[in-house]
Design a protein around this nucleic acid. Structure first.
Lengths: 233, 233
DNA sequence: ACGGCTCACATAATCTACATTTCTCAAATG
DNA sequence: CATTTGAGAAATGTAGATTATGTGAGCCGT
Protein backbone atom coordinates (compact mmCIF):
# COMPACT_ATOMS: atom_id res chain seq x y z
CA UNK A 1 0.00 0.00 0.00
CA UNK A 2 1.22 3.43 -0.75
CA UNK A 3 3.83 4.09 1.83
CA UNK A 4 5.63 7.37 1.61
CA UNK A 5 8.89 7.70 -0.23
CA UNK A 6 10.98 7.10 2.86
CA UNK A 7 9.15 3.85 3.47
CA UNK A 8 9.53 2.71 -0.09
CA UNK A 9 13.23 3.48 -0.03
CA UNK A 10 13.63 1.70 3.27
CA UNK A 11 11.84 -1.39 2.04
CA UNK A 12 13.66 -1.33 -1.28
CA UNK A 13 17.11 -1.13 0.25
CA UNK A 14 16.21 -3.76 2.83
CA UNK A 15 17.00 -1.40 5.69
CA UNK A 16 16.58 -2.93 9.09
CA UNK A 17 13.30 -1.71 10.42
CA UNK A 18 12.77 -0.29 13.85
CA UNK A 19 9.97 -1.25 16.20
CA UNK A 20 8.36 2.09 15.46
CA UNK A 21 8.28 1.34 11.74
CA UNK A 22 6.95 -2.17 12.31
CA UNK A 23 4.10 -0.82 14.41
CA UNK A 24 3.51 1.91 11.84
CA UNK A 25 3.05 -0.63 9.05
CA UNK A 26 0.74 -2.92 11.01
CA UNK A 27 -1.35 -0.11 12.41
CA UNK A 28 -1.67 1.39 8.96
CA UNK A 29 -2.89 -1.89 7.52
CA UNK A 30 -5.33 -2.42 10.33
CA UNK A 31 -6.79 1.03 9.81
CA UNK A 32 -7.00 0.67 6.02
CA UNK A 33 -8.59 -2.77 6.28
CA UNK A 34 -11.18 -1.56 8.73
CA UNK A 35 -9.98 -3.67 11.64
CA UNK A 36 -10.79 -0.76 13.94
CA UNK A 37 -14.14 0.94 14.28
CA UNK A 38 -14.19 4.45 12.78
CA UNK A 39 -14.04 7.02 15.56
CA UNK A 40 -12.60 4.47 17.97
CA UNK A 41 -9.98 5.57 20.44
CA UNK A 42 -6.52 4.10 19.96
CA UNK A 43 -5.24 3.79 23.50
CA UNK A 44 -1.46 3.70 23.61
CA UNK A 45 -1.17 0.80 26.02
CA UNK A 46 -3.71 -1.32 24.18
CA UNK A 47 -2.03 -0.72 20.83
CA UNK A 48 1.36 -1.49 22.38
CA UNK A 49 0.04 -4.78 23.75
CA UNK A 50 -1.62 -5.66 20.45
CA UNK A 51 1.61 -5.38 18.50
CA UNK A 52 3.88 -6.54 21.29
CA UNK A 53 5.90 -3.37 21.61
CA UNK A 54 6.57 -0.54 24.05
CA UNK A 55 4.62 2.66 24.24
CA UNK A 56 7.28 4.76 22.64
CA UNK A 57 7.32 3.08 19.23
CA UNK A 58 3.52 3.16 19.22
CA UNK A 59 3.58 6.85 19.94
CA UNK A 60 5.98 7.44 17.04
CA UNK A 61 3.85 5.38 14.69
CA UNK A 62 0.73 7.28 15.72
CA UNK A 63 2.46 10.60 15.20
CA UNK A 64 3.48 9.60 11.70
CA UNK A 65 -0.01 8.43 10.87
CA UNK A 66 -1.52 11.60 12.25
CA UNK A 67 0.37 13.64 9.68
CA UNK A 68 -1.07 11.41 6.97
CA UNK A 69 -4.54 11.97 8.38
CA UNK A 70 -4.87 8.25 8.98
CA UNK A 71 -5.39 8.90 12.68
CA UNK A 72 -6.76 11.95 14.45
CA UNK A 73 -4.58 13.35 17.20
CA UNK A 74 -5.80 15.49 20.08
CA UNK A 75 -3.11 16.80 22.39
CA UNK A 76 -3.43 15.35 25.88
CA UNK A 77 -6.43 13.30 24.83
CA UNK A 78 -5.03 10.63 22.63
CA UNK A 79 -5.41 9.24 19.16
CA UNK A 80 -8.52 8.16 17.30
CA UNK A 81 -9.44 6.32 14.12
CA UNK A 82 -10.84 8.93 11.72
CA UNK A 83 -14.57 8.71 11.12
CA UNK A 84 -16.08 7.74 7.78
CA UNK A 85 -18.95 9.55 6.16
CA UNK A 86 -20.60 9.68 2.80
CA UNK A 87 -19.95 13.39 2.61
CA UNK A 88 -16.23 12.91 3.09
CA UNK A 89 -16.20 10.13 0.53
CA UNK A 90 -17.89 12.35 -2.05
CA UNK A 91 -15.24 15.00 -1.55
CA UNK A 92 -12.53 12.39 -1.77
CA UNK A 93 -13.84 10.93 -5.01
CA UNK A 94 -14.30 14.38 -6.52
CA UNK A 95 -10.73 15.30 -5.71
CA UNK A 96 -9.39 11.99 -6.97
CA UNK A 97 -11.13 12.58 -10.28
CA UNK A 98 -9.55 16.01 -10.61
CA UNK A 99 -6.04 14.93 -9.76
CA UNK A 100 -5.96 11.59 -11.53
CA UNK A 101 -7.33 13.26 -14.65
CA UNK A 102 -4.37 15.57 -14.74
CA UNK A 103 -1.94 12.80 -13.92
CA UNK A 104 -3.35 10.49 -16.57
CA UNK A 105 -3.42 13.20 -19.20
CA UNK A 106 0.18 14.18 -18.54
CA UNK A 107 1.23 10.54 -18.61
CA UNK A 108 -0.42 10.00 -21.97
CA UNK A 109 1.06 13.19 -23.41
CA UNK A 110 4.54 12.18 -22.25
CA UNK A 111 4.11 8.51 -23.04
CA UNK A 112 7.11 6.26 -23.37
CA UNK A 113 7.50 2.56 -24.14
CA UNK A 114 8.38 1.93 -20.52
CA UNK A 115 5.18 3.53 -19.32
CA UNK A 116 3.12 1.44 -21.75
CA UNK A 117 4.89 -1.72 -20.65
CA UNK A 118 4.08 -0.96 -17.03
CA UNK A 119 0.40 -0.65 -17.81
CA UNK A 120 0.26 -3.84 -19.85
CA UNK A 121 2.11 -5.78 -17.19
CA UNK A 122 0.20 -4.55 -14.17
CA UNK A 123 -3.08 -5.05 -16.03
CA UNK A 124 -2.10 -8.60 -16.79
CA UNK A 125 -1.41 -9.24 -13.12
CA UNK A 126 -4.64 -7.60 -12.07
CA UNK A 127 -6.70 -9.54 -14.58
CA UNK A 128 -5.30 -12.81 -13.23
CA UNK A 129 -6.28 -12.02 -9.65
CA UNK A 130 -9.82 -13.03 -8.74
CA UNK A 131 -11.89 -11.04 -6.28
CA UNK A 132 -12.98 -13.29 -3.48
CA UNK A 133 -16.47 -12.91 -2.10
CA UNK A 134 -16.85 -12.92 1.67
CA UNK A 135 -18.04 -16.55 1.44
CA UNK A 136 -14.80 -17.55 -0.24
CA UNK A 137 -12.69 -16.15 2.56
CA UNK A 138 -12.77 -12.56 1.44
CA UNK A 139 -9.10 -11.68 1.73
CA UNK A 140 -8.47 -9.41 -1.23
CA UNK A 141 -5.13 -8.07 -0.11
CA UNK A 142 -3.48 -9.42 -3.25
CA UNK A 143 -6.10 -7.83 -5.49
CA UNK A 144 -5.75 -4.51 -3.67
CA UNK A 145 -2.00 -4.53 -4.20
CA UNK A 146 -2.34 -5.23 -7.90
CA UNK A 147 -5.20 -2.82 -8.34
CA UNK A 148 -3.08 -0.07 -6.88
CA UNK A 149 -0.12 -1.11 -8.99
CA UNK A 150 -2.24 -0.76 -12.13
CA UNK A 151 -3.58 2.66 -11.23
CA UNK A 152 -0.09 3.76 -10.28
CA UNK A 153 1.23 2.58 -13.62
CA UNK A 154 -1.36 4.72 -15.39
CA UNK A 155 -0.24 7.91 -13.68
CA UNK A 156 3.42 7.04 -13.26
CA UNK A 157 4.48 9.06 -16.29
CA UNK A 158 2.96 12.35 -15.19
CA UNK A 159 6.33 13.80 -14.24
CA UNK A 160 5.40 14.87 -10.73
CA UNK A 161 6.27 12.89 -7.65
CA UNK A 162 4.06 15.33 -5.76
CA UNK A 163 1.01 14.45 -7.78
CA UNK A 164 1.72 10.73 -7.59
CA UNK A 165 2.07 11.04 -3.83
CA UNK A 166 -1.23 12.89 -3.49
CA UNK A 167 -3.01 10.29 -5.59
CA UNK A 168 -1.58 7.53 -3.46
CA UNK A 169 -2.59 9.27 -0.27
CA UNK A 170 -6.14 9.46 -1.52
CA UNK A 171 -6.05 5.83 -2.66
CA UNK A 172 -5.23 4.89 0.92
CA UNK A 173 -8.26 6.67 2.22
CA UNK A 174 -10.49 5.27 -0.50
CA UNK A 175 -9.40 1.82 0.52
CA UNK A 176 -10.96 2.31 3.94
CA UNK A 177 -14.33 2.84 2.31
CA UNK A 178 -13.93 -0.10 0.00
CA UNK A 179 -13.27 -2.52 2.80
CA UNK A 180 -16.32 -1.63 4.81
CA UNK A 181 -18.46 -2.26 1.75
CA UNK A 182 -16.79 -5.52 0.78
CA UNK A 183 -19.57 -7.60 2.29
CA UNK A 184 -21.96 -6.58 -0.47
CA UNK A 185 -19.37 -5.61 -3.04
CA UNK A 186 -21.16 -5.20 -6.34
CA UNK A 187 -19.90 -7.76 -8.79
CA UNK A 188 -19.11 -5.45 -11.66
CA UNK A 189 -16.70 -6.90 -14.12
CA UNK A 190 -13.63 -5.02 -13.03
CA UNK A 191 -11.40 -6.71 -15.58
CA UNK A 192 -13.38 -5.30 -18.49
CA UNK A 193 -13.51 -1.85 -16.95
CA UNK A 194 -9.79 -1.75 -16.40
CA UNK A 195 -9.11 -3.11 -19.86
CA UNK A 196 -11.12 -0.27 -21.39
CA UNK A 197 -9.12 2.29 -19.43
CA UNK A 198 -5.88 0.64 -20.50
CA UNK A 199 -6.87 0.58 -24.16
CA UNK A 200 -7.84 4.23 -24.23
CA UNK A 201 -4.59 5.16 -22.50
CA UNK A 202 -2.42 3.08 -24.85
CA UNK A 203 -4.29 4.51 -27.85
CA UNK A 204 -3.35 7.97 -26.64
CA UNK A 205 -7.00 9.02 -26.43
CA UNK A 206 -6.73 11.47 -23.56
CA UNK A 207 -10.38 12.39 -23.21
CA UNK A 208 -11.69 8.85 -23.47
CA UNK A 209 -9.16 7.54 -20.97
CA UNK A 210 -9.98 10.30 -18.49
CA UNK A 211 -13.70 9.71 -18.86
CA UNK A 212 -13.39 5.99 -18.38
CA UNK A 213 -11.14 6.38 -15.36
CA UNK A 214 -13.27 8.96 -13.58
CA UNK A 215 -16.48 7.17 -14.49
CA UNK A 216 -15.16 4.15 -12.69
CA UNK A 217 -14.58 6.15 -9.52
CA UNK A 218 -17.96 7.80 -9.75
CA UNK A 219 -19.70 4.50 -10.36
CA UNK A 220 -18.06 2.99 -7.31
CA UNK A 221 -19.23 5.97 -5.30
CA UNK A 222 -22.79 5.59 -6.57
CA UNK A 223 -22.86 1.93 -5.65
CA UNK A 224 -21.73 2.73 -2.15
CA UNK A 225 -24.33 5.46 -1.85
CA UNK A 226 -27.05 3.01 -2.88
CA UNK A 227 -25.81 0.47 -0.40
CA UNK A 228 -25.86 2.98 2.43
CA UNK A 229 -29.27 4.25 1.40
CA UNK A 230 -30.58 0.67 1.39
CA UNK A 231 -28.98 -0.14 4.73
CA UNK A 232 -29.69 3.12 6.51
CA UNK A 233 -33.37 3.10 5.55
CA UNK B 1 1.93 28.69 8.21
CA UNK B 2 -0.23 25.94 6.90
CA UNK B 3 -0.49 23.51 9.74
CA UNK B 4 -2.58 20.43 9.23
CA UNK B 5 -6.20 20.31 10.31
CA UNK B 6 -5.43 18.90 13.69
CA UNK B 7 -3.04 21.77 14.35
CA UNK B 8 -5.50 24.39 13.20
CA UNK B 9 -8.22 22.95 15.40
CA UNK B 10 -5.89 22.76 18.34
CA UNK B 11 -4.74 26.34 17.90
CA UNK B 12 -8.27 27.57 17.28
CA UNK B 13 -9.73 25.97 20.36
CA UNK B 14 -6.77 27.07 22.43
CA UNK B 15 -5.96 23.52 23.43
CA UNK B 16 -3.06 23.21 25.79
CA UNK B 17 -0.10 22.20 23.75
CA UNK B 18 2.30 19.43 24.57
CA UNK B 19 6.06 19.70 24.45
CA UNK B 20 6.01 17.58 21.30
CA UNK B 21 3.70 20.04 19.58
CA UNK B 22 5.75 23.02 20.67
CA UNK B 23 8.90 21.47 19.26
CA UNK B 24 7.00 20.52 16.11
CA UNK B 25 5.97 24.12 15.49
CA UNK B 26 9.39 25.62 16.12
CA UNK B 27 11.23 23.01 14.12
CA UNK B 28 8.82 23.46 11.25
CA UNK B 29 9.39 27.21 11.25
CA UNK B 30 13.14 26.82 11.41
CA UNK B 31 13.08 24.46 8.44
CA UNK B 32 10.75 26.66 6.38
CA UNK B 33 12.76 29.77 7.12
CA UNK B 34 15.99 28.10 6.14
CA UNK B 35 17.57 28.24 9.58
CA UNK B 36 19.08 24.83 8.88
CA UNK B 37 21.28 23.92 5.98
CA UNK B 38 19.55 21.70 3.40
CA UNK B 39 20.81 18.15 3.80
CA UNK B 40 21.97 18.83 7.34
CA UNK B 41 21.56 16.14 9.95
CA UNK B 42 19.11 16.87 12.73
CA UNK B 43 20.66 15.17 15.71
CA UNK B 44 18.10 14.39 18.37
CA UNK B 45 20.13 15.64 21.32
CA UNK B 46 21.12 18.85 19.60
CA UNK B 47 17.55 19.60 18.60
CA UNK B 48 16.38 18.81 22.11
CA UNK B 49 18.93 21.20 23.57
CA UNK B 50 18.03 23.90 21.07
CA UNK B 51 14.37 23.92 22.06
CA UNK B 52 14.92 23.07 25.70
CA UNK B 53 13.06 19.78 25.70
CA UNK B 54 13.66 16.07 26.14
CA UNK B 55 14.50 13.69 23.35
CA UNK B 56 11.12 12.08 23.23
CA UNK B 57 9.09 15.13 22.21
CA UNK B 58 11.74 15.89 19.59
CA UNK B 59 11.39 12.40 18.24
CA UNK B 60 7.64 12.77 17.97
CA UNK B 61 7.95 16.11 16.23
CA UNK B 62 10.45 14.68 13.76
CA UNK B 63 8.19 11.75 13.04
CA UNK B 64 5.29 14.09 12.28
CA UNK B 65 7.44 16.22 10.03
CA UNK B 66 8.79 13.18 8.22
CA UNK B 67 5.27 12.30 7.10
CA UNK B 68 4.93 15.82 5.72
CA UNK B 69 8.22 15.39 3.86
CA UNK B 70 9.64 18.33 5.78
CA UNK B 71 12.38 16.09 7.16
CA UNK B 72 13.87 12.91 5.73
CA UNK B 73 13.90 9.93 8.06
CA UNK B 74 16.26 6.99 7.78
CA UNK B 75 15.66 4.19 10.25
CA UNK B 76 18.55 3.77 12.67
CA UNK B 77 20.39 6.66 11.07
CA UNK B 78 18.47 9.71 12.08
CA UNK B 79 16.69 12.65 10.55
CA UNK B 80 17.85 15.14 7.95
CA UNK B 81 16.74 18.43 6.45
CA UNK B 82 15.56 17.68 2.91
CA UNK B 83 17.84 18.96 0.15
CA UNK B 84 16.84 21.73 -2.23
CA UNK B 85 17.38 21.57 -5.95
CA UNK B 86 16.25 23.45 -8.98
CA UNK B 87 14.89 20.24 -10.45
CA UNK B 88 12.68 19.66 -7.42
CA UNK B 89 11.53 23.24 -7.48
CA UNK B 90 10.51 22.95 -11.12
CA UNK B 91 8.42 19.91 -10.35
CA UNK B 92 6.91 21.66 -7.36
CA UNK B 93 5.95 24.75 -9.34
CA UNK B 94 4.52 22.66 -12.15
CA UNK B 95 2.36 20.72 -9.73
CA UNK B 96 1.26 23.87 -7.92
CA UNK B 97 0.12 25.35 -11.22
CA UNK B 98 -1.94 22.26 -11.99
CA UNK B 99 -3.59 22.01 -8.60
CA UNK B 100 -4.16 25.68 -7.92
CA UNK B 101 -5.65 26.08 -11.37
CA UNK B 102 -8.29 23.53 -10.54
CA UNK B 103 -8.85 24.98 -7.09
CA UNK B 104 -9.17 28.52 -8.40
CA UNK B 105 -11.48 27.51 -11.23
CA UNK B 106 -13.77 25.62 -8.88
CA UNK B 107 -13.78 28.49 -6.44
CA UNK B 108 -14.78 30.92 -9.17
CA UNK B 109 -17.48 28.62 -10.49
CA UNK B 110 -18.93 28.19 -6.99
CA UNK B 111 -18.35 31.77 -5.97
CA UNK B 112 -20.24 33.22 -3.01
CA UNK B 113 -20.24 36.66 -1.39
CA UNK B 114 -18.28 35.25 1.52
CA UNK B 115 -15.56 33.99 -0.77
CA UNK B 116 -15.31 37.36 -2.51
CA UNK B 117 -15.14 39.14 0.84
CA UNK B 118 -12.29 36.92 1.93
CA UNK B 119 -10.29 37.79 -1.16
CA UNK B 120 -10.88 41.52 -0.84
CA UNK B 121 -9.99 41.50 2.82
CA UNK B 122 -6.85 39.40 2.59
CA UNK B 123 -5.69 41.39 -0.42
CA UNK B 124 -6.13 44.56 1.56
CA UNK B 125 -4.01 43.18 4.38
CA UNK B 126 -1.38 41.96 1.95
CA UNK B 127 -1.21 45.29 0.10
CA UNK B 128 -0.58 47.07 3.39
CA UNK B 129 2.37 44.90 4.32
CA UNK B 130 5.69 46.04 2.91
CA UNK B 131 8.38 43.59 1.90
CA UNK B 132 11.53 44.36 3.79
CA UNK B 133 14.83 44.09 2.01
CA UNK B 134 17.68 42.37 3.83
CA UNK B 135 19.12 45.81 4.64
CA UNK B 136 15.92 46.80 6.41
CA UNK B 137 16.04 43.81 8.72
CA UNK B 138 14.57 41.28 6.33
CA UNK B 139 11.98 39.64 8.55
CA UNK B 140 9.05 39.03 6.23
CA UNK B 141 7.16 36.67 8.48
CA UNK B 142 4.17 38.98 8.52
CA UNK B 143 4.18 39.27 4.73
CA UNK B 144 4.44 35.49 4.36
CA UNK B 145 1.44 34.99 6.62
CA UNK B 146 -0.67 37.45 4.69
CA UNK B 147 0.54 36.20 1.34
CA UNK B 148 -0.56 32.72 2.25
CA UNK B 149 -3.85 34.01 3.58
CA UNK B 150 -4.55 35.68 0.24
CA UNK B 151 -3.73 32.61 -1.80
CA UNK B 152 -5.77 30.49 0.55
CA UNK B 153 -8.72 32.84 0.16
CA UNK B 154 -8.54 32.42 -3.61
CA UNK B 155 -8.86 28.65 -3.44
CA UNK B 156 -10.97 28.41 -0.30
CA UNK B 157 -14.20 27.93 -2.24
CA UNK B 158 -13.09 24.93 -4.26
CA UNK B 159 -15.12 22.53 -2.17
CA UNK B 160 -12.32 20.12 -1.37
CA UNK B 161 -10.42 20.12 1.88
CA UNK B 162 -8.11 17.59 0.24
CA UNK B 163 -7.14 19.98 -2.51
CA UNK B 164 -6.72 22.87 -0.12
CA UNK B 165 -4.50 20.71 2.04
CA UNK B 166 -2.33 19.68 -0.88
CA UNK B 167 -1.93 23.29 -2.01
CA UNK B 168 -0.92 24.29 1.48
CA UNK B 169 1.58 21.47 1.72
CA UNK B 170 3.18 22.68 -1.48
CA UNK B 171 3.13 26.30 -0.28
CA UNK B 172 5.17 25.18 2.71
CA UNK B 173 7.81 23.67 0.50
CA UNK B 174 7.82 26.65 -1.84
CA UNK B 175 8.47 28.85 1.15
CA UNK B 176 11.78 27.10 1.73
CA UNK B 177 12.95 28.14 -1.70
CA UNK B 178 11.71 31.68 -1.28
CA UNK B 179 13.66 32.25 1.90
CA UNK B 180 16.99 31.16 0.51
CA UNK B 181 16.59 33.63 -2.32
CA UNK B 182 15.46 36.53 -0.17
CA UNK B 183 18.89 38.13 -0.24
CA UNK B 184 18.49 39.06 -3.87
CA UNK B 185 14.72 38.99 -3.98
CA UNK B 186 13.65 40.59 -7.23
CA UNK B 187 11.67 43.74 -6.49
CA UNK B 188 8.68 43.02 -8.63
CA UNK B 189 5.60 44.92 -7.66
CA UNK B 190 3.79 42.14 -5.93
CA UNK B 191 0.85 44.34 -5.00
CA UNK B 192 -0.04 44.95 -8.64
CA UNK B 193 0.36 41.30 -9.53
CA UNK B 194 -1.91 40.19 -6.75
CA UNK B 195 -4.44 42.88 -7.56
CA UNK B 196 -4.67 41.62 -11.12
CA UNK B 197 -5.29 38.08 -9.92
CA UNK B 198 -7.95 39.34 -7.54
CA UNK B 199 -9.72 41.36 -10.19
CA UNK B 200 -9.86 38.49 -12.64
CA UNK B 201 -11.19 36.20 -9.93
CA UNK B 202 -13.84 38.62 -8.75
CA UNK B 203 -14.87 39.26 -12.37
CA UNK B 204 -15.44 35.54 -12.74
CA UNK B 205 -12.97 35.31 -15.60
CA UNK B 206 -11.72 31.78 -15.02
CA UNK B 207 -9.13 31.60 -17.75
CA UNK B 208 -7.63 35.01 -17.08
CA UNK B 209 -7.43 34.37 -13.35
CA UNK B 210 -5.77 30.99 -13.86
CA UNK B 211 -3.28 32.47 -16.31
CA UNK B 212 -2.37 35.34 -14.04
CA UNK B 213 -2.00 33.07 -11.03
CA UNK B 214 0.16 30.47 -12.73
CA UNK B 215 2.18 33.09 -14.57
CA UNK B 216 3.12 34.51 -11.20
CA UNK B 217 4.43 31.16 -10.01
CA UNK B 218 6.32 30.57 -13.25
CA UNK B 219 7.82 34.03 -13.16
CA UNK B 220 9.05 33.52 -9.63
CA UNK B 221 10.60 30.26 -10.74
CA UNK B 222 12.32 31.92 -13.67
CA UNK B 223 13.78 34.61 -11.46
CA UNK B 224 15.17 32.00 -9.14
CA UNK B 225 16.64 30.07 -12.04
CA UNK B 226 18.38 33.21 -13.29
CA UNK B 227 19.72 33.92 -9.84
CA UNK B 228 21.15 30.45 -9.51
CA UNK B 229 22.57 30.56 -13.02
CA UNK B 230 24.24 33.87 -12.22
CA UNK B 231 25.59 32.61 -8.91
CA UNK B 232 26.53 29.07 -9.91
CA UNK B 233 27.87 29.87 -13.40
C1' DA C 1 -36.29 16.20 43.73
C1' DC C 2 -33.62 18.08 39.83
C1' DG C 3 -29.98 20.34 37.22
C1' DG C 4 -25.65 22.21 37.63
C1' DC C 5 -21.22 22.79 40.02
C1' DT C 6 -16.90 21.31 42.71
C1' DC C 7 -13.56 18.32 44.06
C1' DA C 8 -11.05 13.86 44.68
C1' DC C 9 -9.63 9.86 42.51
C1' DA C 10 -8.82 6.61 38.73
C1' DT C 11 -7.20 6.42 34.11
C1' DA C 12 -4.32 7.50 30.52
C1' DA C 13 -1.17 10.63 28.02
C1' DT C 14 3.20 12.64 28.28
C1' DC C 15 7.87 13.29 29.62
C1' DT C 16 12.49 12.13 31.76
C1' DA C 17 16.25 9.24 32.61
C1' DC C 18 18.62 5.58 31.58
C1' DA C 19 19.63 0.94 29.29
C1' DT C 20 20.29 -1.26 24.93
C1' DT C 21 21.20 -1.66 20.14
C1' DT C 22 23.07 -0.01 15.99
C1' DC C 23 25.85 2.75 13.24
C1' DT C 24 30.14 5.42 12.07
C1' DC C 25 34.69 5.85 11.17
C1' DA C 26 39.30 5.37 11.52
C1' DA C 27 43.12 2.47 12.62
C1' DA C 28 44.88 -2.09 12.12
C1' DT C 29 45.29 -6.20 9.46
C1' DG C 30 45.87 -9.31 5.48
C1' DC D 1 44.30 -1.50 -1.55
C1' DA D 2 40.31 -3.84 0.36
C1' DT D 3 38.53 -5.73 4.61
C1' DT D 4 38.01 -6.21 9.39
C1' DT D 5 37.48 -4.60 13.89
C1' DG D 6 36.59 -1.93 17.96
C1' DA D 7 35.79 2.40 20.48
C1' DG D 8 32.76 6.10 20.69
C1' DA D 9 28.64 8.43 19.12
C1' DA D 10 23.99 8.35 18.32
C1' DA D 11 19.45 6.26 17.63
C1' DT D 12 16.06 3.40 19.71
C1' DG D 13 13.54 1.24 23.40
C1' DT D 14 12.00 0.54 28.47
C1' DA D 15 10.43 1.80 32.88
C1' DG D 16 8.68 4.66 35.84
C1' DA D 17 7.69 9.59 37.36
C1' DT D 18 4.76 13.43 36.25
C1' DT D 19 0.83 15.82 34.48
C1' DA D 20 -3.68 16.20 32.41
C1' DT D 21 -8.30 14.39 31.71
C1' DG D 22 -12.68 12.67 32.78
C1' DT D 23 -15.87 10.57 35.90
C1' DG D 24 -18.89 10.33 39.69
C1' DA D 25 -20.05 11.32 44.51
C1' DG D 26 -21.37 15.02 47.23
C1' DC D 27 -23.03 19.82 47.65
C1' DC D 28 -25.72 23.99 46.40
C1' DG D 29 -29.48 26.74 44.72
C1' DT D 30 -33.83 26.53 42.62
Amino acid sequence: MALNETEIDAAGRGEKTTAATAVYRQLRQDILKGNFKPGQKLQIDQVATRYGSGTNPVREALNRLSSEHLVDRHDQRGFFVPPLSMERLRELVKTRCWLESIALEESIVNRTPGWEDGIVLTFHHLSRTPIRTPEEGGDNTEWEVRHRAFHNALISGCGSTWLIGFCNEMMDHAERYRYISMSTYPRRDSVVEHRLIMEAALDGDVELAKTRLTDQYRLTLRHLEEQVAAAGG
